[in-house]
Design a protein around this nucleic acid. Structure first.
Lengths: 338, 338
DNA sequence: CCCCTCTAGTAAAGCGGTTTAGTACAGCGC
DNA sequence: GCGCTGTACTAAACCGCTTTACTAGAGGGG
């Protein structure tokens, strides 16, 4: 009388059928009568059997898992609200399909490709999420070469057969600029994210385009890095430079939040002397003084759709690009007329 | 000429040995001569072979993966800096041992136990991290019953055989109270975390003990929930109540940060009229105005040691409790003499 | 020279599923 | 009665490793 887990053979014996029949019954395939199927499922339930994921994985050459590798600087890894929320959305889909998420967090960018290679080589996952796309992202070619299915968050700048799940960032920035221009601002600056990231570039371009559209002179653009320290430095340059803007559009909340402090130290009042907008709508954004006008994107929904798309792709369906509702501007108190 | 992945049989054929010999050579076991071992490893390298994780998992009944299930309210899931950082530490250890991390994020607390059960039933992981311990945490019994190895972050309040990785929170709070008392504060309040969490309780007790130790009257304690909204509400109650404290010790940064805004709205200056301390040392903490005095714990190191401990436990070593350097107070500008 | 032990290696049996090839039988048309 | 088709099911191969049981041969002791 051992208490090892029951196997398919135990179920077969109890139901008086072969292992194959149990497998068929379990997977809802034809070749077993309704009566027999019921008997088999009964026996399985009675024994508390559920198929061994490991055995299944070996015999079907599938991992039943999806991968996500996140590359982040150590100081930024905890500050970014996107990932946990995105992952929560992914999980919602995976849980009900008995799939798992294997996560890799690398703080060293060099380790990123190694991460994907490891996931692929070990056959840990059936597909991966490609986030934080960069200019001419080498991961696209890498994944196509090793034949690992992927979905991208937004469209890469290189041709690819991977489906994209698109959530338009740009129009959040556009809305912010329009909002500021509508308030009467003309000297509007932008603190962008680091160069290689496509979302940083997209936001910067959206800023430039919106300025043009509003018939305003091209605003100053300062380089940030999505960290509070970087946001502080960029803001300081803008506020102490020759042409002090009356409004600044930030590429994320963390930088915008740190700007409020810089302004306070310089005796510049927000929003009276300086309007500020963020991006992300972090939990804190609505609870600082003044509450931050910011752009909100549905990270959770993004995760859900990305997971569905990736699973469909792995199932062999020709997955098409999906477009989600665009990011929207949340008006709060950090913006006002100049 | 197929281009399927090479298997152990291919390597064996090329090296002119049996599959068993390859397995022995790979795993560094005795029974192969140095000469043969070299020949085998050569052949493996030439073929670009690495053992199939799936096959290994099935034949050894191991998953070569560790699990983490994070239960968080939707609004808090992105705001907590602890997890990503902790996970980065875990990964550092796992990567070099070819182990994976499977993550589950559940926003519904009821789904938490189901999460562990699923990981266990499907044999997805060999062990799990037990974080956010609660009073009389039911997960301990659950995991002991299903026989899934675990390590706990700090010690639970119920007896258990699972090793704990201990990082003393309390002394960070103690240091904060001492610091404030040393500055001359006597009316010090605490905004604690939600009831069931052991770390919230520990911080609250540390606060109470430190107040006693400083020979101060027991300070007011307001219930928070670790969110900005909760912090705001608690702070508002304290600052508009009958005995307005001159200093408030918060159980996390997010609540402390939102307090700065509440104070500003009420015309209370920080730190002149009100001193504030946080907990976590989030990226933003040093970049708000005034910069936040807070408590820093090494989440990354915690992750590393927790992973090492869990792997040792799974390997059958009797893993002992480990104690890490305690949390330390980081002095900034949000505290001053009353 | 014989027996014993030790080393280096092989063959084959798992691990627990899926899947393919094959079989037994019923039903049907003629 | 015979061949044909379709259904329900079984036996066995297979996925790619690990591990056990066994063997051949070398070396050593007496």
């Amino acid at each position: 009388m051992s208490n090892r887990r029951p196997t398919i053979a135990d179920v077969a014996r109890h139901a008086g059928v072969s292992k194959g029949a149990v497998s068929f019954a379990l997977n809802g395939r034809s070749g077993v009568s309704d009566e027999t199927r019921r008997r088999i499922l009964d026996a399985a339930a009675r024994l508390g059997w559920s198929p061994s994921h490991r055995a299944r994985a070996l015999s079907t050459s599938r991992a039943f898992a999806l991968g996500l590798v996140v590359a982040r600087d150590p100081e930024l890894v905890g500050a970014d609200p996107f990932f946990p929320t995105f992952i929560a959305g992914v999980e919602k889909v995976l849980a009900e399909r008995d799939q798992a998420l294997v996560l890799q967090v690398v703080t060293n960018p060099a380790a990123e490709e190694a991460g994907y290679l490891r996931l692929a080589r070990e056959g840990r996952v059936d597909g991966v999420f490609l986030v934080d796309l960069r200019r001419a992202d080498p991961r696209i070619a890498l994944l196509e070469e090793i034949g690992l299915p992927a979905v991208t968050l937004n469209r890469p700048d290189v041709p690819t057969r991977f489906p994209a799940v698109i959530l338009d960032d740009r129009c959040g920035i556009t809305a912010a600029v329009r909002h500021l221009a509508g308030l009467g601002h003309t000297a509007i600056a932008h603190v962008c994210g680091p160069e290689p990231y496509l979302h940083a570039i997209a936001r910067r371009e959206a800023f430039a385009d919106a300025m043009t559209e509003a018939r305003l002179p091209a605003g100053q653009v300062e380089q940030g890095d999505f960290t509070a320290a970087g946001g502080r430095a960029a803001t300081h340059r803008l506020l102490t430079g020759p042409d002090r803007p009356t409004a600044i559009v930030y590429a994320n909340d963390l930088m915008a939040l740190s700007a409020i402090a810089v302004a306070a130290e310089l005796g510049i009042r927000v929003p009276d002397d300086l309007s500020i907008t963020g991006f992300d709508d972090t939990d804190l954004a609505g609870y600082v003084h003044p509450a931050l006008t910011t752009v909100r994107a549905d990270a959770r929904g993004w995760g859900e759709v990305a997971a569905q798309t990736l699973l469909a792709l792995i199932d062999g369906q020709r997955a098409a690009d999906t477009t989600l509702p665009p990011a929207e501007l949340i008006l709060r108190r950090s913006t006002s007329a100049p």
